[in-house]
Nucleic acid binder design. Structure first.
Length: 163
DNA sequence: AAAGTGATCATG
DNA sequence: ATGATCACTTTG
């Protein structure tokens, strides 16, 4: 069973401790364990980009599980998301931190991820690996940076950190 | 605490 | 065509 077929909040929790494998064009391989994630759960979630419907930008969120969603935030930072759940259901998990890089903008810098990976499928230049490691403890907390969302959605414990 | 930065989306 | 809005980081 693929983790990414799960609903986003469950997938987000299950992804903590897994390993991202990044293959660069020049052959360099970077491996990094995921330490922090956040779930964005469909059109009903007012914090999700897709809560205002399908647009050119959010189109990728409607693609099948395992699609990579990358977008630019604040003009500077690339954000890396993994699409989860069934096709036409816009759910995704934001990778907020990996071993050696804490913060979503730093993760993409660390892994050399930019717009060129948007709408690509996991398993090529970026792949997921499970080495059997299970985190001793995973903490759940509210998501950050979503002050525009409804109070109920801001209160959801959809941020998962390895601890 | 504050600003820097540019794609995207909703207006006119 | 113009303007508001950001799943953030760095600097002071």
């Amino acid at each position: 069973m693929n983790i990414l077929d799960l609903p986003a909040p469950e997938a987000a929790r299950a992804l903590v401790g897994k390993i991202l494998v990044r293959q660069l064009a020049d052959g360099t391989v970077i491996r990094a364990r995921i330490t922090e994630t956040e779930a964005y759960f469909g059109e009903a979630d007012t914090a999700c980009h897709a809560c205002h419907g399908r647009t050119k930008r959010t189109e990728v969120l409607y693609h099948p599980a395992g699609t990579i969603y990358v977008y630019l935030c604040y003009g500077i930072h690339w954000m890396l998301n993994l699409v989860t759940g069934p096709a036409d259901d816009p759910q995704a998990v934001l990778i907020r931190g990996v071993e050696g890089a804490s913060g979503p903008g730093r993760v993409t810098k660390f892994l050399h991820i930019d717009k060129s990976l948007n709408d690509a499928a996991l398993g090529g230049a970026l792949a997921l690996e499970d080495d059997g490691f299970v985190p001793a403890h995973i903490a759940a907390s509210p998501r950050v940076g979503i002050g525009y969302a409804s109070p109920e959605d801001q209160a959801r414990l959809w941020r998962f950190t390895m601890g």
